[in-house]
Design a protein around this nucleic acid. Structure first.
Lengths: 209, 209
DNA sequence: TAGATTGTTAATCGATTAACAATC
DNA sequence: TAGATTGTTAATCGATTAACAATC
């Protein structure tokens, strides 16, 4: 099975396709052509066809794409058919927001635990979860078969937490801390740097006249 | 003053430069060469020099770059020398998290108000702010000279809110709703699609063997 | 001055778009 | 079959990297 590497540019577009196809599916649409999807999403039809063909042909000449089939296939590519077990480190506002947000928005992503170092928060409830102390981190990850760790603490501490979870075999980190993490090559990190994002907006607003 | 357009790729890297330079400045470092910065940030020295030269020369042959000067210049480019007044629409977990987060992390971004349609939340305190009802939105934006609106509500309603704020002259939206907004050309939108981000992580984890 | 390092041009690489033959 | 639209190759465009002359 030849596995050509897919560019980051393509991967970055997959969730958006998935979102639009989900909406179309829910609206009862059965088939769609790259041309129609192109207009809807404001990208070229050429790009859509190229993107999909990275993963083999999902369409049919003269017909287009079956919406539900394509939706499911992209879901599979994104790994959404497998359940993921997550924990959140940091029970501050952001950690709490993510717990609730993700419970209803993202099926397939199961939030198993939330941790904090603050004595006052430990034992408190966040949604269905009770905040756990940091010294239980390693045992919990191993015992509950966690595969994704969400880092939602300030940048001091983030690097250390990353090191700890990588040591117990974690291969995926969703990082909200305002810093880059330094992890081995076989660990993937998806950064959500909110202040970077806000600065970009500020730049665009400033240059917008 | 010729204003060549800067590519999105370059803009997207500016906040990261700003972050590293801020750390270097705080650590008391006075000068740095593109070669040293290159090693620190894991990008090529060539790219660093090209990026900076989009905005004119900040360095000096044989010397490199003055850290503090470069930091300040990039800050100016990002529009951080101007104060921005923001409001948040949505006083749920995410809205509350952003209020607190941004108050201490992002100087220059002033959170002036928070709105929600939920009767039970209206009047409640979020940090220093009292939650306001949605019917006061337009007057508040105009009266308080708001220039950025943060949308932190579910996708139902997000498009309508965007339309309303654009109508009172808002030119920048920081969108956390799980949908694309359709706004005029002169309005900039910075999307933070958290589930898209999580799906990307899922993909990378899945393909990682 | 000699050494270092930028600013900038040229070469390479990759991603996007266009075109069209294959085929449903 | 004829029309439509994909899959895929070729052309274009833009971004990254390499190279080096300018200069502090």
């Amino acid at each position: 099975m030849e596995e050509k590497t897919i560019s980051q540019a393509v991967i970055g577009r997959l969730p958006r396709y998935y979102r639009y196809l989900g909406d179309l599916k829910d609206a009862g649409m059965e088939r769609i052509s790259s041309g129609e999807l192109s207009e809807l999403m404001s990208v070229t039809a050429s790009q859509i066809r190229q993107d999909f063909n990275n993963f083999g042909g999902f369409g049919q000449q003269g017909y287009g794409y079956n919406v539900e089939y394509l939706y499911n296939e992209i879901g599979k590519i994104l790994g959404l058919n497998e359940a993921h077990r997550l924990i959140i480190v940091g029970a501050g506002n952001l950690g709490r927001a993510l717990t609730n947000y993700s419970n209803y928005e993202n099926r397939g992503f199961i939030f198993e635990g939330i941790f904090d170092k603050d004595e006052d928060l430990i034992g408190k409830k966040v949604g269905d979860l009770k905040v756990l102390p940091m010294n239980e981190l390693e045992d919990f990850i191993i015992g509950h078969n966690i595969d994704i760790v969400v880092i939602a603490i300030p940048k001091t501490g983030a690097v250390e937490v990353a090191d700890r979870v990588v040591k117990c075999g974690i291969k995926a980190i969703w990082n909200f801390a305002h810093t880059d993490l330094n992890v081995p090559d076989d660990v993937v990190v998806e950064n959500v740097h909110l202040s970077d994002s806000l600065m970009k907006l500020s730049y665009m607003l400033y240059r917008n006249d």
